[in-house]
Every structure is written in C-alpha cells, then in structure tokens.
C-alpha cells in the first residue's frame, strides 16, 4: 500500500531521518512510535508532501509519489491529520467537512458565482455527504458550530471527519490521542477500527502506548532518525533495543 524507501532528511546539517525504509500492508493499522525527536512527524511531513526529502522515495501502491504536492496526494487518496489540530477556525463544522469534499466536487468559479443548476445540485449533494461523515464520527449535533469554538476533543474528531470526507485509501494521523481524556481515547480507538472496516489503511504516530498496542497490527519504532524495529505489538514489547531506547531516553 504505502512504501517508504531509504528516506533521509537533513535540515541544515542536522540529520532528522537516516535511511528509513518500511512498507504498510493494505487495510492494516500501523503505529509509528519513538521518543521525542525521533523524526516521526518529519516522516509524516515527507510522506504527505509538506517537506521535500533529501534522499529516498515514497510509493503509494505502484506509484512513485516522492515529490508530489499535498493537494495531488489528496486526489490520489492520501490524507493526514495534524498534531496541533489544523481546523478552518472561522468556518462551521459542516463547512470544514465540505472542504474535505473539495476533490469530490468540481464546480468552477464561474458556475459558483452564477449559481448554475449543476452547482446547486452538487452543493446539495456535498452538504448531505458532509452530514453523513459528521454522523460517522458523532459530530452531527455540532454541525453549525464555528470550528474554533469546539472543545479540543471534538476538534480532533472534526479533523478526522474532514479527512474521511476525502474518501482516502490511506489516512495518516499525527498523535490523534494527544490532549484527549481516557474516555475520549477509548472512543477514538473504536473510531479507528470503524475507519479500518471501511477498507482504509491507517498509519498513526502516537505516544499513548496503550492505544497503540490496542489498535495497531504492526508497529514501527524510530529512534534518533533511524528505524529501530518493525513488528507486531508483541514483538515490539519484547524487543531489547526498543526497551533500551525508551529507558535510555526517559
């Protein structure tokens, strides 16, 4: 599904990632873990086209997507969420999800300004679709709330609804549980499984080990920019190098 091949990223002399390779199986849930500064978010930024890697390649299926822009990746079915929740704060919750449907609609500036019949129909369709995604994540009640007024936990859910509206093949979540309380985290685990049931491949960076061990089928460990291990949750828990890295860091 997703294949990362010998990625190296150097920021002005500082090596953030060094020769990292792995692949993610279709329809699986993969966790990327590692101590702070391990390069997890950098890896996400490279895969999603926000950074240009110094070296290495990224494949989506058979397609080489190494230097694709994020907007192109969205059309190919690769989306992400952000560690710090990047909502469209001034827009309503519903409108946020409707932006997620941008690639699923095509009215141009002309037909939008003149409200041509095709545009009105399309607008109705994406509005309904957006509601469906809000129902999927349980946010339908907040549809008309301005996004910046949402409590943090719901903001995370909105970000996931919005990403799902793109109807991705694969979704990358950057610390989806950060800032959530335990009840919300449990709900998140359920949601992640629900997303998997739709046939979507999931990759998540996460610090909440309980969540990672619970939902992930496969785990990649990064440490100081290098891949330390890749295996099932059980294998990772028993891996000496991983334990040393975590204990050594803490």
């Amino acid at each position: 599904m997703l294949k990362v091949e010998s990625i190296t990223q150097i920021f002005g002399g500082l090596t953030a990632l060094e020769n990292v390779s792995f692949s993610v199986a279709p329809h699986s849930i993969t966790g990327v873990i590692g101590p702070n500064g391990a390069g997890k978010t950098t890896l996400f930024n490279i895969v999603t086209g926000l950074y240009t890697q110094t070296e290495g390649k990224v494949y989506l299926g058979d397609k080489n997507i190494s230097f694709f822009e994020p907007e192109v990746l969205a059309r190919l079915g690769l989306v992400r969420t952000f560690q710090n929740v990047e909502l469209f704060g001034q827009m309503s919750v519903l409108e946020n999800v409707m932006v997620g449907l941008h690639t699923k609609s095509k009215s141009g500036i002309f037909s939008c300004a003149f409200k041509l019949p095709g545009q009105i129909k399309e607008e109705k369709r994406i509005k309904e679709k957006a509601y469906q995604w809000l129902e999927f994540t349980g946010l339908a009640d907040s549809a008309d709330v301005t996004a910046c007024n949402l409590p943090f936990g719901k903001g995370r859910l909105l970000e996931i609804s919005r990403a799902m509206a793109v109807e991705p093949q694969i979704i990358l979540m950057d610390e989806p549980a950060a800032g959530l309380n335990s009840r919300e985290t449990a709900g998140l685990a359920g949601l992640i499984r629900k997303i998997q049931e739709l046939g979507v491949t999931i990759v998540l960076v996460e610090h909440d080990m309980e969540l990672v061990m619970d939902v992930c089928e496969s785990i990649i460990v990064l440490n100081l920019g290098k891949k330390l291990a890749h295996g099932t949750p059980r294998e990772i828990q028993e891996n000496k190098a991983v334990i040393a890295a975590y204990l050594g860091e803490d």
């Binding site: 969205a74 300004a113 409200k115 793109v166």
Partner: peptide, 28 residues
C-alpha cells in the same frame, strides 16, 4: 454567491490554514 460555494469555502480554508486546505486537496 461565491462565498457560500465550493470555491468560497476553499478560499476561506486557505485563509484559515493553507496547509490543511492543501492536504484536503485544495490547489491553494
């Protein structure tokens, strides 16, 4: 009209967070 349409939303999305808009497939 434009403001309440697909294009208007995309523009406002760019205004709020260009990175997120692009990740959603908006060619900013």
């Amino acid at each position: 009209n434009l403001s309440q349409s697909r294009i208007g939303r995309a523009l406002r999305a760019i205004n709020d967070s260009e990175v997120a808009a692009r990740v959603m497939g908006v060619n900013a």
